[in-house]
């Protein structure tokens, strides 16, 4: 059974159809890159998978571990192992990173009928993952993404992912706005988590990230449909030739 099966997915926002029949199968252990021009629906696809309710699903289905993903609340999806690294991580003044992460870890444990995490174990886990994304220790006491630089916010997403250990990781333009050092840190974080039980869907506008996170499959999303799929060499091709040849093709 595929980990994720998207069949003929159509999604609209305020009456505008953005996804117009997306089909995608992702198996555990795979890394899929989804590339496409601005406005092609990449972020919509990522947010629909995480359960953002401003999108209306008009047709199609999404199966996650064989279950209807679209029926689940966002928190249930998270508890079942779906993780979205946000393109624009949200600031939450007044809530420390440590508190936030502990609440998330415990909510997920509660969903699985497990007891709350021991304070010592939590700190140990956090410290280990913090080193992975090269965050300094003061970061835990800072409010979530509040006053963070762009790079820090993206690293924080990967850090959260590393702590929560999801099964399906969706990265929404995690590379945008990162300098090369931050990009490497983010990519290292992702690569350290690659395993045969886990899959990644990496949404990106640029091929650059894929030099560091080498995908098994590359898909081209244009006008709400996947118009072409291939191996990692497709990304190089797109980098050279752009999306022009696909635009209009999908209409």
């Amino acid at each position: 059974m595929a980990l994720l099966e998207i069949r003929n997915l159509h999604a609209s926002v305020e009456g505008n159809e953005i996804l117009r029949g997306v089909n995608l199968t992702v198996n555990a252990g795979e890394v899929h890159a989804i590339m496409g021009p601005n406005g092609s629906g990449k972020s919509t696809l990522a947010q629909v998978l995480a359960g953002r309710d401003e999108y209306e699903i008009t047709q199609g289905e999404v199966l996650y571990k064989g279950e209807d993903l679209l029926e689940m609340d966002p928190e249930e999806r998270a508890a079942e192992g779906v993780f979205l690294a946000f393109q624009y991580p949200v600031q939450i003044p007044g809530v420390s990173n440590a508190y936030f992460l502990k609440a998330a870890v415990n909510a997920i444990r509660k969903h699985h009928g497990e007891p709350q995490i021991d304070a010592f174990d939590f700190m140990k886990l956090v410290k280990e993952k913090q080193e992975l994304v090269e965050m300094d220790s003061s970061f835990l006491n800072r409010a979530v993404n509040d006053g963070f630089s762009g790079g820090e916010k993206k690293r924080n997403e990967i850090f959260q992912m590393a702590v929560l250990q999801p099964t399906l990781c969706v990265l929404d333009e995690t590379d945008s706005g990162l300098d090369i050092d931050a990009l490497k840190i983010v990519a290292n974080g992702v690569n350290a988590m690659r395993s045969e039980n886990r899959a990644f869907v990496v949404v990106t506008h640029y091929q650059r990230l894929l030099n560091y996170i080498v995908p098994d499959f590359v898909h081209v999303l244009v006008d709400g449909r996947l118009v072409r799929s291939g191996g990692k060499e497709l990304a190089m091709e797109l980098e050279e030739r752009g999306y022009a040849e696909f635009e209009g093709a999908a209409v």
Binding site: P74, I92, A143, L164
Partner: peptide, 26 residues
């Protein structure tokens, strides 16, 4: 903030808890 609510929920925090956490933080 709907965005903040979704962010918390997407990390596994139940809607009611997300709501009270945001109110408390404010």
């Amino acid at each position: 903030d709907d965005e903040a609510m979704f962010y918390l929920q997407s990390r596994g925090i139940a809607k009611d808890d997300a709501r009270s956490l945001l109110v408390y933080a404010f």
